[in-house]
Design a protein around this nucleic acid. Structure first.
Lengths: 153, 153
DNA sequence: TGATAAATAGGAGTAGCTACTATATAGGTG
DNA sequence: CACCTATATAGTAGCTACTCCTATTTATCA
């Protein structure tokens, strides 16, 4: 279930890297030592790191790498599908008066957050592994994509 | 369905404000003109504003208010339950290699993001109002609360 | 109405990007 | 297999979104 709990076997790991290299070539991206190191650091992390966290890891093998390269590279990865940005993270904190039950759709282009309401989502049943282990204060369905204004470009 | 589509009637609005005033008093918080103005701006907004956006609105009636006050006040509101922070917003961008289907639990105290996997969540059915209107690139169940380490304090 | 604990304004400091430019290099080509 | 060139990188500067601090103001209660 937890795909990162134990160290990946050498074969697993090699396969993932090969996959990644193929993906880069496929998209016409060069396979640089920086990109490889950043990808490895990301795959070997189980904390959903920020750019800063990846930067600290990668500096072990590439001491002169810059934080900007790490950030840019991680964004590039999310464009080619080698990684993704954890939902809602990044950018300014947003507030909601929370007057009614609703869920959020976020446009990844213009950053608008649009409410919608689908009753079945109002009371999601969490598995016991979560409910028992953590104190849950909020659970919701979260949707991302392009809003109607931004898709017409 | 969309609770903010039309202007609230004067009565609705008055009731909300009264509710808010009662809540403040209940929690021993003073009802200041700043707090009222900020709350009104939030309730009348349908964009899930950032502190900056609320700041711009409130400056109309309180030209000398500071951004820090707006930020601090909005956070106070979320502590007393008069508002809440939109899931995942705020803080640094976080990355995920996305090798398996999984959902995220975020600890609001230590900011760790912990994977969990519950198969029924892998393919959530969105209502037609969303699927038809937007280009959806990502949909997930998102859970927030206190992790096992942080609840023991 | 006066006292006081709480709240605010303003400014300084910090984190996390983001844009820019000169240098370096991956990978195709002859 | 050395060269060429478009792509990528390092380093720096600038910007946004907070966050912390302190002096001043003010909502509330006696």
């Amino acid at each position: 279930m937890n795909h990162k709990k134990d160290k990946n076997t050498a074969d697993d790991f090699g396969a993932k890297i090969q996959c990644f290299v193929d993906l880069c070539r496929d998209r016409g991206l060069r396979v640089t030592p920086q990109r490889l190191a950043i990808y490895k650091a990301l795959v070997n992390s189980d904390e959903h790191p920020s750019a800063e966290m990846v930067y600290e890891k990668v500096r072990g093998s590439l001491p002169t790498i810059s934080l900007d390269t790490v950030n840019r590279t991680l964004l590039t990865f999310s464009e080619i599908g080698a990684a993704f940005v954890v939902e809602g993270s990044g950018g300014a904190r947003r507030f909601d008066a929370g007057l009614d039950n609703h869920q959020h759709f976020k446009c990844v282009k213009c950053n608008r957050i649009i409410d919608f309401h689908h009753e079945p989502f109002d009371d999601i049943e969490l598995p016991a592994s979560i409910d028992g282990r953590f104190t849950v204060s909020r659970k919701t369905v979260y949707v991302e994509g392009l809003c109607e204004l931004c898709q017409s470009h």
